[in-house]
């Protein structure tokens, strides 16, 4: 093949970029399992001379995050407690909305959808002040419940977008046939739409899970020490100016914060990519 040298160059470039994308992950991984002085003495890129899990242990249950030396464990749990209900509620609502907006259309529904969709794109700074007030009003300030509420409110736009795009490709004749067969609004949804929604439900759940788990702004704005999510705790750990910087602990903590979403990405990458692509409105 005459293209041989060109192919080699091609693979070389692609390989180089693999290294580029993997580099930070490598740095985090190797430095999370080596003693601190190996890092501070300029050995960041090297494999550990002494392997140790102490930084992980430290980050998980001992490190000073905020006022108490609790490690990241309670915050990891906070994130889980926040993510699971928020994702569930937003997905269910999104599925119902998508169903109405595609199978029970009415005059003006596209405009309503457009108005909902705009909620995906607003800079959340615009809602921080009134939301802080409202959560106080609802007695949800500084609680995991408050964060769940906020994430549901601003997650609906996304889940509605996903389900609307998916259901608009779902044959409306099926819904009409079911109607003639005597099925009502919810029966049709439950018996006809839901059993055929597997892929988009996965896409939507992954997207919401990733977004809500990774959120920082709402967590930083609306939580207190008892309800902080993982991202906020990690940032506090890394930014804290007291004492010596324990880089290895920081890296271990960062990997912990990344693990759930990374796990989802590895297991269901295909759906993750589809979720990203659905950023275009028509899907």
């Amino acid at each position: 093949m005459t293209l041989r040298p060109a192919r080699i160059l091609l693979y070389a470039i692609l390989g180089l970029f693999c290294l580029y994308y993997l580099l930070p992950l490598y740095v985090m991984l190797v430095n999370s399992v080596k003693p601190l002085q190996e890092i501070t003495s300029g050995g960041m890129m090297e494999l550990p001379q002494v392997w140790t899990l102490a930084p992980w242990h430290n980050a998980w249950s001992q490190a000073q995050v905020g006022v108490e030396a609790t490690g990241l464990k309670p915050y990891f749990l906070n994130s889980l407690l926040m993510v699971v209900p928020a994702v569930t509620i937003a997905t269910v609502l999104g599925a119902l909305n998508g169903y109405v907006l595609t199978k029970w259309r009415f005059r003006g529904d596209t405009i309503l959808f457009g108005l909902m969709l705009f909620g995906c794109f607003i800079p959340f700074q615009i809602v921080l002040i009134p939301m802080a007030r409202s959560l106080g009003f609802l007695n949800l300030s500084g609680t995991v419940g408050g964060l769940i509420f906020v994430h549901v409110v601003y997650g609906i736009s996304f889940s509605t977008l996903y389900f609307r795009n998916y259901y608009s490709a779902f044959p409306t004749e099926l819904v009409r046939a079911a109607e003639i067969d005597g099925a009502g609004f919810f029966t049709i949804f439950w018996r006809i739409l839901v059993p055929n929604s597997g892929p988009i439900a996965v896409v939507c759940v992954i997207w919401l899970f990733t977004n809500i788990w990774n959120d920082f702004l709402f967590g930083a704005s609306f939580s207190d020490f008892s309800s902080q999510p993982m991202t906020v705790a990690l940032n506090n750990l890394v930014q804290s100016s007291t004492g010596e910087k324990e880089y290895n602990v920081h890296f271990a903590g960062a990997i912990m914060a990344a693990l759930p979403t990374l796990f989802v990405y590895i297991v269901a990458g295909r759906f993750f990519v589809r979720g990203l692509m659905s950023g275009s409105v028509k899907g």
Binding site: R176, A178, I180
Partner: peptide, 16 residues
Amino acid sequence: PADRNIAMVFQSYALY
């Protein structure tokens, strides 16, 4: 539709 005592066969068959 369900109460009209009709049945319908669709172009796409609309099988679930």
